[in-house]
Nucleic acid binder design. Sequence first.
DNA 1: TTTT
DNA 2: TTTT
Lengths: 145, 145, 145, 145
Amino acid sequence: MASVNKVILVGNLGKDPEVRHLEGGLAVARFPIATSESFKDKNGQKQERTEWHNIVVWRNLAEVAEKYLKKGQSVYIEGKIRTNSYQDKEGIQRYTTEIVADNLTMLGGRTDAGANNGNPETASSNAGGRSEAPAFEGEPDDLPF
Amino acid sequence: MASVNKVILVGNLGKDPEVRHLEGGLAVARFPIATSESFKDKNGQKQERTEWHNIVVWRNLAEVAEKYLKKGQSVYIEGKIRTNSYQDKEGIQRYTTEIVADNLTMLGGRTDAGANNGNPETASSNAGGRSEAPAFEGEPDDLPF
Amino acid sequence: MASVNKVILVGNLGKDPEVRHLEGGLAVARFPIATSESFKDKNGQKQERTEWHNIVVWRNLAEVAEKYLKKGQSVYIEGKIRTNSYQDKEGIQRYTTEIVADNLTMLGGRTDAGANNGNPETASSNAGGRSEAPAFEGEPDDLPF
Amino acid sequence: MASVNKVILVGNLGKDPEVRHLEGGLAVARFPIATSESFKDKNGQKQERTEWHNIVVWRNLAEVAEKYLKKGQSVYIEGKIRTNSYQDKEGIQRYTTEIVADNLTMLGGRTDAGANNGNPETASSNAGGRSEAPAFEGEPDDLPF
DNA sequence: TTTT
DNA sequence: TTTT
């Protein structure tokens, strides 16, 4: 196999996270983040292009997102690309791409972005749940090696 | 803006690259690569999921792709996520996501994958063209600092 | 060859950058940044470990560091690991490890950290100099593909 | 805090891993990997510089390293930088830097590199042990989201 | 549509 | 020597 699918983003939330709780209590949160880059067009004019990324987080990271992330905030995200397919109403195969994040660090953001601004923290998510206490809550989640 | 949009992939080409030469000689190549991951389903059965990524490379990296990359080969890719929008024939806004690669390293692959197998190399692309001689050709492209 | 040497850091400057201008006008800046992680020790007590990284930047990135980076600020850095060897006065081979950064994004930091706080920007460095106008200055540095 | 300490390497093992089993059965393996880059010196001559990285892996990743990694093999590694300090016999503070890997994917390597050549796989390590069965053994280690 |  |  020998494959790697890794995404690293630093950007700002375009909306507050939307959280759903599935059967069994499984939590999932979704939110868009924007990244921007500048470039010169062929006339030498400065242009900016904004990319929107649909972020999905599960389990304790979803709880963290629900509690602490707000529109406008800046976040560091690690995750993987996932493309889902579906059929539209004409029966044509369509695709949507999202970033499934497994690591999230708040970096601050707009000064009115919410209570957590100025108190950035890190959180991690694992399928098996590495810790009952979310790393985000200030609980250590790992040995230093 | 303080933003980062970075993708790192290791995967196998699903097809040979398709190369086009635009007006002015600008080259662009496209090819799909697959990444895979294993997981257990709810019945404890091992499952595999394959993700397909549409890779786009420009300029000298496109020339490299044309000459050296073949279906089946394994590559390391660095790039960024780019989502393009278009209207389908019903006038509905649709999106396609691709990875614009700016760094590419061949890692080998199937033993019949092509001439370059067993001689993996690295290539880089820059908007301004850092070097006439593509790094891939064996020319050094950078000072060691 | 087929090798990759890539480092991604988000941390705070422990000191203002120290800048030197070599013969020919080549600029180099150095500064330490700290990253921290929490973990539980064997008694279940929360501990924090701080890692210090010696960052080196060349050319226009060094100019950017000199002008805009200050002790306390938070930065995103991409670069590579480089270990230099030297002989100490007893003639024993010693090693020092540093991170040669080729990409730098300011993320803010302490509110008194300097003039640029609240106005984070991105800068890139290339051996060949991709652009006379540093990206950091607000000039676009790249086409969007 | 808001910090990130992430390293991504693709390189070749310079030696077979050395494995130790600590009290309590905790396993740790160490091995060096080389990354190389080409550059032109001031006379326009092609030069190559090789960087050596000391890799440390713990727990099930150490078992994987012991069983499957051999000198010459190519590996993809994700981890973090860790600098340890100690006093030399003259009482001077010295530092050593290593990469603590938490993710490892075999990419092949020299054709005589060992039994696993041609059968690259991925393994992950977690402080809490995400799975009794190491991912490497062919057991799925994660849900696909 | 790849690879194992 | 930073930051929380």
